[in-house]
Design a protein around this nucleic acid. Structure first.
Lengths: 348, 348
DNA sequence: CCCCTTTACGCAAGCGACTGCGTAGTAGTT
DNA sequence: AACTACTACGCAGTCGCTTGCGTAAAGGGG
């Protein structure tokens, strides 16, 4: 194995000289630098980032912990943002997927700690909203090791952790306002548990109704249920109830996964890349039609999260919690069907 | 920072004792082991894989170099296979995407070498089939460092490198045979350059024609062109020529990307997960219709590639080149339209 | 010609974990 | 009692690279 020592021996200099030469240190003569680089290339020397990492305490490595695979259109865009931000500085990322499962989330966080990632970006598993103790522990351990962690899209409200989210409250507000403008009065909300994005969304939903003088009926607000399906959530039960029992004419969905389930297949295909959280759907039709949706700045979210970590790398001290809320773009579709508000089909 | 030394000091033993205790070495007493583990837990000790990696020369890390993002349905399945195989042994993967670009491919391979990945799995960028010199260099460097590399799906024929591919020749043979059975006589092949998968496919295509006593006309075989589009290849030009000038009635496509381009959007959506390389299409219709396709064992390909590397990790010497060809499943659709063979529409 | 400042390197001590070899201490044998 | 055989650890070197500090050589000023 050719190391700096090898090069040093060949040239009859010390290994520290080689190190400094390769790092372009000012105290090494130009001629020496040239010779060192020449020999290094000839010998096919490849610097050992593991050894460097050990003494620099920096690995130029990021850990990404995602609930689903990167074939999820949401995560894929987030990932691109992160990659885009870090590629130029020679960072690599460990990509981990948890299957929306807490145990695996913890497992991966442990592995990333052992491997001394320089930072970790997490899109938390939904099951944390039932019991977040394991995640909290992991965050504490990361803190102790001095590894910055940033949450994306969702976070645990009472945990002191940096995060980057979309402006869910405004989104929900505008989407519901749009539905009201289309004539809808009985509008359902399918959220779920105490997830920050859904909670914020619900707030916007309520505010929009209130502003329009519509009484917000509690029975119109349902939770999706956690399931072991690939998406983690199932909304069909809630939607069926809302349509059959309560005769809602429009719906606000708090998850792109939910929206995808309900959209007609051909739309799902075409618009897959656009469909993101907080789609609002309206009828009629065999399937629900999408009245509007939000195009969240997902790449930007990834980029911001990476940027926060990069700041810490450059010696930035963590003084206070970073809370980034990125504005999203709203996309309104033409009114579905004849544009009249009418009960939605219960069949999904 | 709490290290083994910290634990050792607390307990008044040496750090080597701590190391052995944590690794459950036989020469350490049961009582000592218990105490060490207790203190380790209390202090929140997290082993440093970087330090371990330096002296073991094993990082428990794999590098994956893919041309596209993991939102590509092909790669996503390959990735799942790899993850599945390596998760249980505590491996993490560096996921790198090259955008089908050689420079970035080389850049990522260099990074992976520096970080001393234990092995690298590569789905080569298509541009390597024009000029593979940079890839060859990288492979040589990896060899020198003793890092095993496995190619998936495609490989460079004159390079001594392990690879896992699908049974492209048989696939093409069966698909063409199916088209012939449907009455087609003028069957086009859209491949491209000297890529192994396409070359093998073309061999099967020719053999099927020959077995049916059909003369294989050279003008029915076209190359797709390399482009900077997301897919890397563009087939529309070739397809247009085949349809307009040569009046072919059916087509064999050597890439799932090409097939996706030509399929009607709603099918692309619905069947996205099935559409893989070597789809065969036939008309008529506004769009080409899919007559048959191959469901390749993509997860299995990933798993096999990972397994090959794991073998090397366990001290397996590389004696001879590993060449794995995995059988695929063929999926035949009902004949399109009235099932009659007729010229395909040139519009795409 | 001597002293002082630069320039250009070498020495050696880490970083955190692993490991070959040596050695006290205890137990068992004859 | 002397010898052998384990058991249970400690010492110190190693992995490859970085870095603070020390120093010889070269150059410049008085």
């Amino acid at each position: 194995m050719v190391t700096m020592k090898t090069i040093a021996t060949v040239l009859g200099v010390s290994d520290s000289t080689v190190s400094r030469a390769l790092n372009d240190h000012f105290s090494i003569g130009g001629e020496t630098k040239r010779k060192v680089r020449k020999v290094a290339k000839e010998l096919g020397y490849v610097p050992n980032a593991v050894a460097r990492g050990l003494n620099q305490k920096r690995t130029k490595t990021l850990g990404l912990v995602f609930p689903y695979s990167l074939s999820d259109p949401f995560l894929a865009r987030v990932y691109h943002g992160i990659e885009d931000e870090t590629l130029k500085s020679g960072y690599n990322q460990f990509v981990c997927q948890t299957g929306d499962n807490q145990e695996r989330e913890q497992l991966h966080l442990d592995q990333l700690m052992e491997k001394r990632a320089d930072g970790v970006i997490v899109v938390p598993a939904s099951s944390n909203y039932v019991d977040d103790s394991s995640l909290c522990e992991s965050v504490a351990s990361l803190r102790q090791l001095g590894i910055p962690i940033v949450f994306i899209d969702k976070y645990l409200p009472d945990m002191d952790v940096d995060y980057v989210i979309a402006d869910y409250e405004r989104l929900a507000y505008e989407l519901v306002k749009h539905l009201i403008g289309l004539g809808h009065r009985r509008i359902g909300f399918v959220g779920g548990y105490d997830c920050t994005s859904m909670r914020d969304g619900q707030r916007g939903y309520r505010r929009a109704l209130a502003d329009a003088g519509i009484v917000c009926e509690q029975r119109f607000v349902k939770n999706a249920v956690l399931s072991d399906s690939p998406g983690g959530w199932r909304a069909d039960g809630a939607v069926r109830e809302l349509a059959e029992e309560d005769g809602v004419t429009a719906l606000l969905l708090a998850s792109h996964k939910q929206a995808l389930e309900l959209l007609p297949a051909e739309h799902a295909g075409i618009e897959r890349r656009d469909v993101v959280e907080f789609a609002s759907l309206s009828g009629p039709g065999r399937f629900w039609l999408r009245a509007a949706t939000a195009r969240m700045a997902l790449e930007e979210m990834g980029r911001m999260a990476a940027e926060i970590i990069m700041k810490y790398q450059q010696g930035g001290e963590r003084t206070r919690r970073q809370e980034v809320v990125l504005p999203s773009e709203l996309i309104f579709r033409k009114a579905a069907g004849d544009g009249k508000a009418r009960p939605l089909p219960a069949e999904i």
